[in-house]
Design a protein around this nucleic acid. Structure first.
Lengths: 220, 220
DNA sequence: ACTCGTTTCAAACGTCTGTTTGAAACGGTT
DNA sequence: AACCGTTTCAAACAGACGTTTGAAACGAGT
């Protein structure tokens, strides 16, 4: 890729504008202002707005490769799942800490463009397949279709809090929504999933009992 | 509300345009064309575009009240949950059968405006609370926070297939994605959830065994 | 038939958008 | 210093958009 500082400034300014305003909402004028460049710079360096958007998305995901940490080999699949869910919630879902790169990639998920192919290949699929590998260890008898449905069940539970946060908040009230913090959700989704797979106590047991007894004592 | 046929024509045309193009993408000209009316009709009858959008969303949900069917009193919570998930997937998620009303309401979920308050109060909350009631019967010892998190886990699993279908399809390929049809997903999400709550066999048992034996024989 | 409030219509307005243009500024080469 | 390819710049262009306007058409009440 290009290391031209001018193009880089434009790509970053474009990424931030596109992330906060969307493709239609962001204007070339605002992008060039933010980059401290002339209005014509975008069309000179990138041809047109669509091309700039595509390259901005690809550039953004290159700056956001922190998430994919391979699990240690001796990790149990249970703790690998917990790690994965925790990292996923923390980096992709947590509202307040979201960088514009992540916002941009989420926009691309819901409203995919030409850039989404690169995005899927280089950023999303590696994480998804890592999740599938964990699920295969947890669920060795499941076929591929089941594994994919299970992976979407995990991802869906997590992404919900990113894709529909304002409606969710309105639904149960801001206080109750705030109580569903990162730690609680990580624990909830992990236990929900593990219980569904038969690797942990189901939820219908009293919560206090569940907390009082360690998992290993009960599961063996 | 108004039974003025002119306003109704405009509301329906607006709903379809907003659903397929979004608020910014839809134009007053296209809406009036579709309604067979003059360009100035919108501003005369509704003031401005934003007001028209708000009323179109409310009008859409009024035309889409088919979903909320109260369960029969003697239904077991397990089959009530299966019914709820099935209806939810069928009416809200199924791509090919989605009406513009549903698309519009989903747009409002991800990108809420002033109209979302009415939408939540009259359309979303009743369904959500019905789901919560079912979960409380399945999980009588859970506190309110747990119930809400559980409800979001169910909703998140379902909505994922609506909110990020193109990325999901790209992720596992169109063939594999097509294999996750309505019937399979209903069964998957229901069993996943019931297993997490300890009301059904977990997934890590062989699928064939699971199918061969009826639930009642095993669960008592 | 006339009136008057309501509704429709064609036309225009002002603004904002992405894009183009042609000249100016720059930087290395001869 | 003259040259030339590259990059920057101010200005303008053309089109689309939401909105406004003022007159025409309509319809019920007198």
């Amino acid at each position: 890729m290009s290391h031209d500082p001018t193009k880089l400034r434009l790509l970053e300014a474009a990424g931030e504008e596109f992330a906060s305003k969307g493709f239609d909402g962001a204007t070339i004028r605002a992008i060039c202002d933010r980059a401290g460049m002339n209005l014509a710079a975008v069309n000179y360096h990138f041809g047109d707005k669509e091309n700039l958007y595509e390259q901005a998305v690809v550039h953004a995901h290159r700056c956001d490769m922190t998430l994919l940490v391979e699990p240690e080999a001796d990790e149990t699949p249970e703790s690998a799942l917990r790690d994965h869910i925790s990292k996923f919630l923390e980096h992709v879902v947590a509202l307040e800490r979201a960088t514009w790169q992540q916002v941009l990639m989420l926009r691309e998920m819901v409203n995919p463009t030409r850039a989404s192919e690169t995005l899927v290949r280089e950023a999303i699929r590696p994480r998804f397949e890592r999740l599938c590998r964990i699920l295969r260890r947890l669920c060795p008898e499941a076929d591929e279709r089941r594994i994919q449905a299970l992976a979407f069940s995990v991802v869906g539970q997590c992404l919900h809090y990113k894709l529909a946060p304002s409606i969710s908040m309105r639904l149960i009230g801001p206080d109750a929504f705030a109580r569903l913090d990162l730690e609680y959700l990580t624990d909830h989704i992990t236990r929900f999933t593990l219980a569904a797979l038969g690797h942990e106590l189901p939820f219908d047991l009293s919560e206090s009992v569940h907390k009082a007894l360690s998992q290993k004592e009960l599961m063996g």
